[in-house]
């Protein structure tokens, strides 16, 4: 009995050890290449600005549309960031190298999600600032808004990495990943927008059902990734 518990603890510790290792590597690569800073972030800001142009200059319209626009910008940008994250493992030789290192596939999945999560949270912070300053949004409950941002980002990143693995090689991934991810993350768009609206109107309270939906989505996709990433990479 105790041996079995000991074995499970070892496997879990190993998984998290590999996750930190992979997250550190991915973040180091991102810091050096600055794809997020010079490509993903400008794309996100551009999306926000173009939507604002399309809606017109009325402050009331902008404020009313801000939650949806914010999450659309995050959603599109997260797909772009995920393309880059998966490109790190892109070639067959790189995948083979990872497999020969004996890294736990669940750890690789969690590591990639962690690195992407940090990038998306940083992106959300900049976009949030833009929305508050230029879309005339008044935030009445920062804790609820921040909780929804973190939970939604976790769900998005887990789905992005899982579907990024499913989308396969680089030549197909660029077009296939958005097709797979965007319909799947519709619940995040809806729940994130609703949670944003509540946090900027009357205050949602941490028991909000929208936060609940975001939590369930994040947990389901993280669990699916931990279980399926290895078999997907093997195939």
């Amino acid at each position: 009995m105790w041996h079995e518990v000991d074995d499970v603890v070892k496997v879990v510790l190993q998984m998290w050890r590999d996750a930190w290792l992979v997250a550190g590597r991915d973040l180091r690569i991102e810091l050096r290449s600055r794809v997020g800073l010079w490509q993903v972030l400008p794309f996100a800001l551009l999306t926000l600005v173009l939507f604002a142009f399309a809606l017109g200059p009325q402050p009331a319209t902008l404020a009313r549309s801000a939650p949806g626009l914010f999450w659309l910008a995050v959603l599109f940008s997260s797909v772009l960031a995920a393309q880059r994250s998966m490109a790190i493992e892109g070639t067959r030789a790189t995948k083979d190298a990872s497999r020969l290192l004996g890294l736990d596939p669940a750890g690789v999945f969690l590591g990639k999600v962690l690195a992407l999560l940090l990038e998306i949270i940083a992106l959300e912070a900049v976009l949030l600032l833009g929305v508050v300053l230029f879309f005339h949004v008044h935030v009445s409950s920062w804790p609820d808004l921040l909780a929804s941002c973190v939970l939604a980002a976790l769900g998005l990143c887990a789905a992005d990495v899982l579907y990024g693995s499913l989308a396969g090689e680089a030549r197909t991934r660029a077009t296939l990943l958005p097709l797979l991810v965007l319909p799947a993350v519709a619940p995040v768009l809806i729940a994130g927008s609703k949670a944003f609206s509540e946090a900027t109107s009357r205050g949602a309270g941490l028991g909000s059902r929208w936060l609940g939906i975001l939590t369930v989505f994040a947990l389901v996709y993280t669990a699916m990734g931990v279980i399926l990433y290895g078999p997907l990479e093997e195939s």
Partner: peptide
Amino acid sequence: MLGHDVGLWDDL
């Protein structure tokens, strides 16, 4: 294994 493509990470 050392293949035709070394399979390491270009940005590191």
